[in-house]
Structures are given as structure tokens and as C-alpha cells.
């Protein structure tokens, strides 16, 4: 079916579930967003979102094992950027979809488990779904995009 009234542009990426390769996704997202978003801090926030989501997929969904596929998409709309990160591993527990832990004092500072907190702080909207064997985290940032 032909696509009509196209008002968005999408880049799709696939990496193997290796933490050593996550930087490629981060650099790609940052590079694209720096070209199309004027707000200075937003590309960095989006890089944090995608890196943390891919890290979660590799570490938790795939148990840190290489040889599995992580799919990433970056979609630019005139008024928002939508990032998706998908895996075919273990589903995230419902209680972990939103983690709003905030560091308060030295002896309570977390050394791990901050990824979801960062995603929720950096993105405006975060969704998680599982369908047809794929788990997908969708992160939306409402921002003016000029392509």
C-alpha cells in the first residue's frame, strides 16, 4: 500500500546484543538529533534514553548474552522524536516499567538500576509492550523537529 501524506522520517538500526556495540546507536541518535533539533540539551537526553533502553534489553531481556537481535528505530515527526527499542528476550516485569527512584543521600545512592529512572526523566512519554514475541520500549520526546 503506498504511503500518503508522509510527515515523518524513520531510521531503523539492528545491533547484536553486545554492550560494546551500544555506543554506535548512541552516536547515531545524537548525530541525527543534533542536525534537526535546536534545543541544545535534547539530543543528549535522547542519546541517554536509547542507550539505557538498549542496555536494558541486552542485560535483562537477553541476560547479557551476545548473538541476539536488538532493533532500534528513530522516527522524526515535525513535533516529536519517537525512539523504539525492541528485543525478543525476557519481558520486563510490570513493576519495573516505571522506576522513579531518586538518590537522596550518600548511603542510599544507587550504584545500579538507574536506567529506567533516567529514561523516564529524559523522555516525555514512555510505553512498554509485548507483541508477537517482541518486547518494545517506545520513548517520545515532544520537541520541534526541522528536517
Amino acid at each position: 500500500m503506498p504511503c500518503t501524506a508522509l510527515n515523518h522520517h524513520t531510521l531503523s538500526l539492528i545491533i547484536d546484543s553486545r554492550l560494546e556495540d551500544v555506543f554506535l546507536v548512541g552516536l547515531a541518535v545524537r548525530g541525527i538529533c543534533r542536525q534537526v533539533i535546536e534545543e541544545k540539551e535534547v539530543p543528549g537526553h535522547l542519546e541517554l534514553c536509547v542507550v539505557e533502553a538498549v542496555n536494558n534489553a541486552i542485560k535483562h531481556a537477553y541476560g547479557g548474552l551476545p548473538g541476539n537481535e536488538v532493533r532500534i528505530s528513530v522516527t522524526l515527526f515535525p513535533d516529536r522524536v519517537v525512539l523504539t527499542v525492541s528485543d525478543q528476550g525476557k519481558k520486563m516485569a510490570a513493576t519495573n516499567h516505571f522506576s522513579d527512584r531518586e538518590p537522596q543521600q550518600s548511603d542510599a545512592m544507587p550504584e545500579s538500576g538507574m536506567g529506567l529512572f533516567i529514561i523516564h526523566r529524559a523522555a516525555d512519554q514512555v510505553e512498554y509492550s509485548s507483541k508477537d514475541g517482541w518486547n518494545t520500549m517506545t520513548m517520545t520526546k515532544w520537541v520541534r523537529v526541522t528536517t
Partner: peptide, 16 residues
Amino acid sequence: DFVDSTGLGMIVSTLK
């Protein structure tokens, strides 16, 4: 030019 949550965790660990 980039630190993720794991890197931040290691900096926290150093402080501790």
C-alpha cells in the same frame, strides 16, 4: 563526552 547509568554507578561507587 558520554556517561550512562552504569558509568554513573561506578562514580557513585568510587564516592562510597
